[in-house]
Simulated assay, not measured.
Amino acid sequence: MSSAQLYDTIGATYTATRRTEPRIAAQIWAALGDARTILNVGAGTGSYEPPDRHVLAVEPSALMRSQRPADAAPCLVGSAENLPFDDQSFDAAMAVASIHHWQDPIAGLREMRRVARRVVVFTHDTSDTGWLHRFWLTRDYLPEVANLLVGRPSITELADAIGARIEPVPIPWDCADGFFEAYWRRPEAYLDENVRRGMSVWTTVGPDAEQRAVRNLRADLTSGRWPERNQALLNLEEAELGLRLLIA
């Protein structure tokens, strides 16, 4: 399934749960430096587009484009791997939580590097230590996520492709953006169908795995096993769960 097809499938409730988290936005916008013209690749509904700069968006999904606010940046149909712009057309190119859906992430990053003088990408470290076994939801309830990572470039390979440095992105406990890891201290949220529909992982692993994970999580919350197992998380203000910025 292409990224456009995936988001045409999951995107109907996206604006209800996926909003700009101000603390993560501040980190992304700081990484953009003094860039005034910005290309947002895989732009979705426009989250994290800086309001005080000139932004042009590229998004393959018609459903996602249709949900962009009226005052959002102009948005073109297109994909990361084939950006229709001349070399160095922008001060910066950004991509937020979309690279894992690109057909060829390395090619997409190199295209961003070609059309912009600076590249900022919000993504995640998919290694065992970086993400898969660090987050309780994947570790204890959804091991199928490991299958989604097969053949995907590592965070190091992604960074090396464009000469990027890697910067950790902590997730606040009350994160406003409902991405997959956002509710790490609010496990009850994952029982909500509307919350899950804003996360592509659930659609990708399929309904059987999803319902089993939800059923087991509900049982562990009811029995008290979840808080007992995850006691160390309960008083944290933010968590390190493998989210990263690539900055080149």
Results as ranks from 00 to 15, higher is better:
Ile99Thr: 10
Ile99Asn: 02
Trp102Ile: 05
Gln103Pro: 00
Gln103Tyr: 08
Gln103Ser: 11
Asp104Met: 03
Asp104Ser: 09
Pro105Ile: 03
Pro105Met: 02
Pro105Ser: 01
Ile106Met: 02
Ile106Ala: 04
Ala107Glu: 06
Ala107His: 05
Ala107Tyr: 03
Ala107Gln: 08
Gly108Tyr: 13
Gly108Glu: 14
Leu109Met: 12
Arg110Ile: 06
Arg110Trp: 10
Glu111Tyr: 12
Glu111Val: 03
Glu111Trp: 12
Met112Asp: 02
Met112Leu: 02
Arg113Thr: 07
Arg113Ser: 14
Arg113Pro: 01
Arg113Gln: 14
Arg113His: 14
Arg114Ser: 13
Arg114Gln: 11
Ala116Ser: 11
Ala116Tyr: 06
Ala116Arg: 00
Arg117Met: 12
Arg117Trp: 11
Arg118Glu: 12
Arg118Met: 07
Val119Gln: 06
Val120Thr: 02
Val120Lys: 01
Val121Leu: 07
Val121Ser: 08
Phe122Asp: 00
Phe122Pro: 00
Phe122Tyr: 14
Thr123Phe: 00
Thr123Asp: 13
Thr123Ala: 10
Asp125Cys: 05
Asp125Asn: 04
Thr126Gly: 15
Ser127Phe: 03
Ser127Asp: 07
Ser127Trp: 09
Asp128Gly: 09
Asp128Asn: 11
Asp128Gln: 08
Thr129Met: 10
Thr129Ala: 15
Thr129Pro: 04
Thr129Trp: 13
Gly130Ser: 05
Gly130Leu: 01
Trp131His: 15
Leu132Tyr: 15
Leu132Glu: 15
Leu132Gln: 13
His133Gly: 05
His133Asn: 07
Arg134Leu: 10
Arg134Gln: 09
Phe135Tyr: 14
Phe135Trp: 15
Phe135Asp: 00
Trp136Ala: 10
Leu137Val: 07
Leu137Ser: 03
Thr138Val: 06
Thr138Ser: 14
Thr138Phe: 11
Thr138Met: 08
Arg139Ile: 04
Arg139Asn: 09
Asp140Ser: 09
Asp140Asn: 10
Tyr141Arg: 05
Tyr141Met: 10
Tyr141Asn: 05
Pro143Lys: 07
Pro143Cys: 07
Glu144Asn: 05
Glu144Ile: 04
Val145Pro: 00
Val145Ile: 07
Val145Ser: 04
Ala146Asn: 08
Ala146Tyr: 08
Asn147Phe: 14
Asn147Glu: 15
Asn147Gln: 13
Leu148Gln: 11
Leu149Met: 12
Val150Lys: 10
Gly151Met: 07
Gly151Ala: 08
Gly151Ser: 06
Ser154Pro: 02
Ser154Cys: 06
Ser154His: 10
Ile155Gln: 04
Ile155Pro: 00
Thr156Trp: 15
Thr156Phe: 15
Thr156Pro: 01
Thr156Lys: 11
Thr156Met: 13
Thr156Ser: 14
Ala159Gln: 09
Ala159Asn: 05
Ala159Phe: 13
Asp160Ile: 10
Asp160Trp: 04
Asp160Lys: 07
Ala161Arg: 02
Ala161Asp: 08
Ile162Lys: 13
Ile162Glu: 14
Ile162Pro: 01
Gly163Phe: 15
Gly163Leu: 13
Gly163Lys: 06
Gly163Met: 11
Gly163Ile: 06
Ala164Leu: 05
Ala164Lys: 00
Ala164Tyr: 10
Arg165Phe: 03
Ile166Ser: 01
Glu167Arg: 02
Pro168Leu: 06
Val169Lys: 01
Pro170Ile: 09
Pro170Ala: 10
Pro170Trp: 12
Pro170Thr: 03
Pro170Phe: 11
Ile171Asn: 00
Ile171Trp: 01
Ile171Thr: 05
